[in-house]
Design a protein around this nucleic acid. Structure first.
Lengths: 140, 140
DNA sequence: CAATAAATGCAACTTTGTTGCAAGTATTTT
DNA sequence: AAAATACTTGCAACAAAGTTGCATTTATTG
């Protein structure tokens, strides 16, 4: 049960007790550096955790703002690490996600800013999700 | 079994046989003028159709480009009518959807153009989905 | 109107996600 | 450092969402 300082730090900061499943799942996100679906985690963790535990862990992470969900056209829920700026319950208002058609991996492009949108009269925007589909730099 | 000229026209144009479920579901989309989830259709059609039929009808409509799916944060698949410009299999490359927090309805804002995005080097965009969350003009 | 092709409904099944509760593990307190 | 407390986990059972094969019904074509 020796996990990196970083992992312990993240969990502690969010007032979560440090358990093996949380540490391990968080490690997966840190290592993978992209979005993961529930199924990915189930596989990559080596089937060691109960399905329910994974569901609950992800849910907790979302609530704490450690991770956020990404909507996709084919309706698989994807989860990705938030940057430090994400505070509890309040994620970035603008988010750009890139899904590669080839390798299927999903990346958060948090450096890319979402341009202003002109909405019709009367529409008040609160959050904007942008999902770009295409070919990533490794797959060309 | 008297459905509007428009409905027959859409089905015919897509080489689909005119059946009651297809006509009725298509009518729902035309009347509702917004996005519908599978569950909405099940309710609004008056439980007259089998669940499976609805799944298959929606799938067919998506394949033919009559309808497209909208990714949402809470991962319910939404379907919305495509404009005429959507040809088979090739939908709009840019799409703006607005989901109202209050009334929950989802609209396609196809008149709104998606601004250019600057992606990091090597990333080739193919399709851009923009989902805006907020308050619609009727709910203010 | 008959022949053919396609769509529907049913049943059974798979996959995905949820809930309550007993047992186990982490944290806090002394 | 051990006991008390609080939280997490895994199991079982369940609910919801989606899929597939096949017999029956419905639409289209000549």
């Amino acid at each position: 049960m020796k996990f990196s300082r970083q992992i312990l730090e993240i969990l502690k900061r969010n007032q979560l007790s440090v358990t093996e499943s949380r540490s391990k799942i968080l490690e997966l996100f840190l290592v993978h550096n992209g979005a993961l679906a529930h199924a990915d985690i189930e596989k990559k963790s080596g089937t060691s955790f109960d399905r329910v535990t994974i569901y609950r862990t992800l849910q907790t992470f979302v609530e704490k703002g450690i991770v956020h969900t990404i909507p996709t056209a084919d309706n698989a829920i994807l989860y990705a690490l938030c940057r430090d700026e994400c505070s509890e319950g309040h994620h970035h208002d603008h988010h750009v996600h890139f899904i590669c058609k080839q390798c299927g991996s999903t990346l958060c492009l948090e450096d890319i800013s979402v341009p202003e949108l002109k909405l019709p009269k009367g529409y008040q925007p609160a959050q904007i999700e942008v999902v770009v589909n295409g070919v990533c730099k490794d797959c060309r």
